[in-house]
Design a protein around this nucleic acid. Structure first.
Lengths: 353, 353
DNA sequence: ACATCAAGAGAAACCGCTTCCCGAAGCACT
DNA sequence: AGTGCTTCGGGAAGCGGTTTCTCTTGATGT
């Protein structure tokens, strides 16, 4: 039970005895009685309403300062019907991509006085919908990263989340701004780069099967196949972790390809390490590309050729799209596509003659 | 202004015309009238209060389900005086250490039905106090990572934050659980390891000057100096970023030391890369240690000898300490010290003869 | 000097939910 | 049948604000 029977008698705070430890929070009523006005007036002053006489306003402000009064956000939220908070649902907070999005979003939102509530679904797609719904009820909007969620479920969920921004997904059920990185385009460019270096036998070390962004890469590669019918392209099962990449090194070494497209940088680095242990030199024996251009990608040896995803821009833009929906009741802007930028570094080289 | 004049006439939701788009949120009153009971009873049912007749309870539950009713968390928070949310203040979300803490905290808290609100102070220490205060007003407690905040400010702030858990800081003003990583101990062990390999000229590439954890390392190294008076130990200005490490490579190469203790893994990796460009071999020409044991530390070439900080445990324990304070009104438990675990890898070797 | 009006502050309603308080109803016991 | 309990649900009072509505007051116009 909340503390009833507060500031009953004895005036305002500062009770002489029993000083701290029971001096409960100061509320609008305290300020009102100290300034000798109604709490309505205090509220008006706190919100910059100009219909208050300046001398009274000053008195109220003095009282508020004296009492160190700050309006209770929960009370305000209830009255105002908004929380100045947005939620972000991510499948896995240990993934650098989502960390970067979270960071960009958080900073951009903070600039406008908004906070970010996080919900980590731990890669459990069944949780994603529930978490998103929960988050929405406490927040003014939701940014949803749900790579594993089925399209059907997304279609059903989207309308209930309304001020919603999707990352790497799109939906038709209701106009919703989406920010999607064009993974298909990126991987095609990487593959083309390898072809340019003379490679004709290429392998793609896949990401998680049900990952939407993996599917996009595969789609891009199918297009690539069509464009370069003379290139031999095979798929090898991989993953999105260091260990997955590391453990793929045998399969990679034995597959006969002269160049490997890896799902992402993390796996690529694992693979790089595994190959190094087996004495396979990169790029002399084998060329290698990653994806994401994580901070470390330029510090591997050799530095990783990869596709840079403008991730922090992504977080930033996510906030902007969210704000558009919250402020004006703007109908959603169309999907934004982010073409990755290819970073040519040392892990790719001419095919061995 | 919030939507007044809602479910006035016309019974419950499902208005035949003007179906969606204006069908505002369903509230406890809707469920009550549909089930033919008072909203007090609905509340009792929703909260599992057993003093409600089973048949009535069933009717209420049916109505709630039919209407897809979920209690509004803001309303609950106001009535209950708690938000089921905790805040975390971090100096920089791009720092892997804080990411890991955030992640551990978030997951642990989620297990108990709590959410995490993040506040990134962007390394601006003056913001830290404000953000922490703000966060505290919206949350049931705060986890504070404020490496730059002055002791005085911390002492003053701590009591106002009460359900508080400190990371890498301690305070006396009020009993507060602290989780501190024993950086001094860790760096001493790393230094001793180098001595064991025969190194007698060692350099420490420092972190940010005002960083508390850098100070702790320096303190540890002073103890080390006292323990090993015959070892020559010098300090070189460094930083906590890749680039800082990278740019220190000239200074490092010219300092005459045979082994370098680097502030953290990130800077160590930058340095490693810089040295490699200059043709300096690690560990043949120079031994190198990092700190933190980030995921990539084992994937550098050579793999980085470093001190592993059990970071995700840290986030986990932070939550446990927070929960203790929230649930029982437990006086704070004492400070927990985390001794780092030394990870011997390839970046350190015997001194060149 | 009187009517009109604008400004400003207080009373009260409201946001959505929890819970105290109390009265009504059902039951057992004498 | 009357008394005393217990059980259970409705009314109403918060939680801490915002905002509408209304009334008072002083200023202005004629």
């Amino acid at each position: 039970m909340p503390a009833r029977t507060l500031r009953a008698a004895s005036g305002i705070g500062k009770g002489s005895m029993a000083s701290r430890a029971t001096t409960r929070r100061v509320g609008i009523a305290d300020v009102a009685s100290m300034a000798g006005v109604s709490h309505a007036t205090v509220s008006r002053v706190m919100n910059g309403n100009t219909t208050v006489d300046v001398v009274i306003a000053a008195r109220v402000r003095a009282a508020a300062k004296e009492l160190k009064y700050k309006p209770n956000p929960v009370g305000r939220s209830l009255a105002l019907g908004k929380t100045d908070t947005i939620g972000i649902v991510v499948p896995d907070l240990s993934n650098p991509t989502f960390q970067a999005i979270l960071r960009g979003l958080s900073i951009a939102a903070a600039r406008d006085g908004y906070r970010v509530l996080i919900a980590d679904s731990s890669e459990v797609s069944s949780e994603e919908a529930i978490l998103a719904g929960e988050a929405r009820r406490r927040c003014d909007g939701v940014v949803l990263c749900a790579p594993r969620m089925s399209d059907a479920e997304l279609e059903e969920l989207a309308p209930t989340l309304h001020p919603l921004v999707l990352i790497n997904r799109t939906t038709d059920s209701v106009p919703t701004p989406s920010l999607v990185v064009d993974y298909g385009q990126g991987i095609q460019e990487l593959a083309a780069h390898l072809v340019g270096l003379g490679h004709r036998k290429i392998a793609y070390l896949t990401g998680p099967d049900r990952s939407a962004s993996n599917v996009q890469r595969l789609r891009g590669l199918e297009k690539f196949k069509a464009d370069y019918p003379d290139v031999e392209l095979q798929y090898l099962p991989g993953g999105n972790t260091y260990d997955a990449g590391f453990e793929s090194s045998d399969a990679v070494a034995g597959c006969g390809a002269t160049a490997i497209l890896v799902f992402n940088d993390v796996a690529a680095m694992g693979l790089l390490s595994g190959l190094s242990e087996r004495g396979i030199r990169v790029p002399e024996d084998l060329s290698l590309t990653g994806f994401d251009d994580m901070p470390f990608a330029r510090y591997t040896m050799p530095p990783l050729t990869t596709a840079a995803v403008p991730i922090s821009e992504l977080g930033d833009l996510a906030w902007r799209r969210m704000r558009e929906q919250i402020q004006r009741n703007d109908a959603a802007s169309p999907t934004d596509y982010f073409p990755p930028r290819i970073e040519l570094r040392g892990s790719t080289g001419p095919v061995r003659s």
